[in-house]
Design a binder for these strands. Structure first.
Length: 222
DNA sequence: CTCCAGGGGGCCA
DNA sequence: TGGCCCCATGGA
């Protein structure tokens, strides 16, 4: 399995190149974006973040102080704005009470994962995105695209794998390298958006087309 | 008009 | 656990 995952990474990186993730700059913007993008197109997230920038609210202390209602109105374009405002307020409080982002960086991946997930509204993917992209610690981020692509390659055949099981597939078979984990997840997103939309099979220009020999007809049948 | 987007929680069996 | 519903805006 390790060989196949390395091959996938090699093919994707050589085809698409570095993805320079996370889009947007700064730790706070990454953290905020990680929550805002929950089941939401990045386009809409960008509008919400632009509003927050104008209001000087891409700042943990500021988010912790602003009223939930005011914050909610600013992030409306991202959808689910009331629940997301609540989630980001709780996340900001957790970070402030932890002594800020710099203090979070001194915690272990396991500790961060446990604490972040204990914040209401921060699940597996959001926690891991924050740990990898904002705090730059080695953890593999799994999302719906990851499952869809692996499934179409026939690598999840039959079994209904949980988030942690899919994650372990990568963590146990690859070197724990922040840069590589960063690019790998971003490349999956790039691949999915380019060649693997929800109701379409991988097309013939897909950089992973040569992996057909490893899998079944699922790629052809979509 | 319908479908969907870089999820997550609550509820219920 | 696993399925289902809810959260909501904007693009295709």
């Amino acid at each position: 399995m390790g060989r196949i995952l390395e091959k996938i990474y090699f093919l994707l990186y050589n085809h698409f190149g570095s993805q320079h993730w996370w889009p947007g700059d700064g730790e706070v913007e990454i953290i905020v974006g990680a929550v805002l993008t929950q089941n939401t197109s990045w386009r809409n997230v960008e509008r919400a973040i632009a509003n927050l920038k104008d209001a000087g609210l891409v700042d943990i202390e500021a988010i912790n102080k602003v009223s939930e209602n005011e914050f909610a109105n600013l992030i409306k374009p991202s959808g689910f704005y009331r629940i997301k405002a609540q989630r980001l307020k709780e996340l900001a409080r957790y970070i402030v009470e932890s002594g800020g982002i710099s203090n979070l960086k001194s915690k272990s991946v396991e500790e961060l994962r446990r604490e972040l997930k204990s914040v209401k509204g921060i699940g597996d993917e959001t926690a891991d995105s924050i740990i990898l992209y904002a705090l730059e610690k080695p953890i593999f981020v799994v999302d719906s695209y990851t499952r869809r692509i692996l499934s179409r390659l026939g690598l999840l055949e039959g079994q209904d794998m949980s988030y942690s099981e899919v994650q372990e597939l990568f963590m146990k078979n690859l070197k724990h390298d922040v840069k590589m984990f960063n690019e790998f997840h971003a490349l999956f997103v790039k691949l999915a958006k380019t060649y693997c939309t929800k109701n379409a099979p991988l097309c013939v220009q897909c950089p992973l087309r040569l992996l057909c020999s490893f899998s079944s007809k699922r790629i052809l049948s979509g």
